[in-house]
Amino acid sequence: MSIELWIVGLLAFGSLFFTVVGVVGLYRLPDIYTRAHAVTKADTLGAGFALVAVAVAIGSTSAVLKAALLFAIVFVANPTAVHLLVRAAYSRDVSVWTTTDHQQGEQP
């Protein structure tokens, strides 16, 4: 087991961890606004870790450059897409979850 393999494994595990956190957030949180929060942060980080893992695993300069470019695009595109989604929801008056909803037991 070389050091490189360990680094790649750790990075892949990190990617998996944050993606799973994102999925759990998507499933557990009550409304679109909080869900967007979970998905954007966790998934961008997860994809970032995965790309760094790929760059380390392949190791060539072109692979590192491509991974960096992909990371930049994911970093811009993912939050923007979710921002537009939430913005559309807000302008269509999708209601915001509040603690009273929880007390009435309407939402899980």
Binding site: V76, A77, T80, L84, R87
Partner: peptide, 19 residues
């Protein structure tokens, strides 16, 4: 059926200009 006329999102336009 938008309730209001569509207003461009500054975040969206900036990101799209970049990409």
């Amino acid at each position: 059926d938008y309730p209001d006329p569509y207003v461009m999102s500054p975040v969206g336009t900036t990101a799209v200009r970049l990409v």
